[in-house]
Nucleic acid binder design. Structure first.
Lengths: 119, 119
DNA sequence: CCTGTACTTTACGATCTAGTTAATTAACCG
DNA sequence: CGGTTAATTAACTAGATCGTAAAGTACAGG
């Protein structure tokens, strides 16, 4: 884990920790959008939306293009993949606990069948 | 997305946004550990470590057991899986951009071969 | 050139965070 | 009991975050 990678994860996770920003990402999953449009669903001033977008941009999760007075936002796939990769390193833990659950259920099933046979 | 799910993601992502806490999770991936042991790698007072653990616990990412004066911490798989699932919803974006890259490379290769044939 | 639209910047306040030190709790051990 | 070890709680500070309102920037179009 390099310094730069850690910094990226700091910013990405911090950006994702806000429900408004996650909702903005969900909206951007449907396609590009401008700031006013992105702010529409929220009871929040435009400057507040603008700040959220800045946080997402600083984390690399979105990029912006400039066309006349409109600033279009677009979802960036690569950083989200990096987040997924980080979390994915822990995948064996939930796989393992799933296996343990399966073992338990298998065990339970066998004991139940045995009980049935004894009666 | 229910209120409770949003709250969980708020806490989980906020907890993951700190490098010390991610390092603690990485250590816990190797097995249970007590507070002092977990704090060892960091130039940080014990109360600070204790606070980080409280944040991780509140996010559900770890659980704690109590044995004499030791409080052992353990990684919880289920919430990490929930985080992975959330990020996974965006997977098609990086898959798609990967496909576009492949298309581009395939195209480049064919044009290169064609150039070769012309000479 | 003036007006409207789409945003950003600035300045501010409230609340949260990450760290500190000092004091406290709790349990074991001689 | 008294001392040591393990960890938490309390009180505090510095700095970040999330929101607001008001002012400023940039561009398009009559």
């Amino acid at each position: 884990m390099t310094e730069a990678e850690a910094d990226f994860l700091d910013r990405a996770f911090a950006a994702l920790a806000d429900p408004t920003r996650r909702a903005i990402l969900a909206r951007l999953a449907l396609g590009e959008a401008g700031v006013t449009e992105l702010g529409e669903p929220f009871q929040m001033s435009l400057p507040a939306v603008s700040k959220h977008l800045k946080v997402l941009e600083r984390a690399g999760l979105i990029t912006r293009s400039h066309q006349a007075q409109w600033r279009y936002c677009r979802l960036e796939p690569a950083p989200l993949k990096k987040v997924a990769d980080w979390v994915g390193d822990y995948q064996r833990f939930w796989d393992e606990s799933y296996e343990r659950l399966e073992d338990y259920l298998e065990d339970l099933k066998q004991r139940t069948e045995q009980q049935g046979a004894e009666q």
